[in-house]
Amino acid sequence: MLTESLRESMFSAFLALLRRDILLAFRRRTELLFPVAFLLVVVSLFPLGIGPGPNLLARIAPGVIWIAALLATVISLDGLFRSDFDDGSMEQFILSGHPLTLIVLAKIVAHWLVAGLPLVLLSPLLAMWMNLPLDSLGVLIVTLLLGTPILSLIGSIGVGLTLSLKRGGQLLSLLVFPLYVPILILATAAVMAASDGLPYGAFLGLLTAGLVTSVTLAPFAAAAALKISLS
């Protein structure tokens, strides 16, 4: 049971942290562009490596775009808690008395807004490069909208666990990629079904269920991971 004022103060702390993180991210604008540039480079490598045949590219487009999004997310994840951990802000947050889960959730939302959302916004360009049929572009965007927050949420657990390591970033991909498997399968299946003119509603429903589940569970796990890393 939360009293009204406590809930209000928690919510305002959440918003304040969110605003702070986004402002900090925009202060380092070039760093913000790294994952986006990475995504563009990776996707552009596929036509170069496989050949420009439009049919083959259209066939592999959902998989390529989604795998590139996974890679770009993991690259950007390393910064999720890093600067706060290094300058001691993380300990301050814990001492502030607000639940760590809430703080973690605010940081994840901020991370998605600055690192996940650009991937979604870029997807029409990628779809054009990969010759994806225009009809399935909408489904691709929806899967990215539903799926990339899950990537940030699950990824935050891995970041929390590897935070105290010097080369945590290299280990991070090994920790989170197996956990990303179901999302990759569901999202690409939805886009492929749309390309083939098959019903895809069920996949989007499952992705939504995954998003709801990970929003409710992942912040707790990430907070527990952070506490272990800070101990």
Binding site: I157, L161, P178, I228
Partner: peptide
């Protein structure tokens, strides 16, 4: 402890 937590997350998944 960290690896146990990871194992637990893996178990859920």
């Amino acid at each position: 402890r960290a690896a146990s937590l990871l194992a637990l997350v893996g178990l859920v998944n």
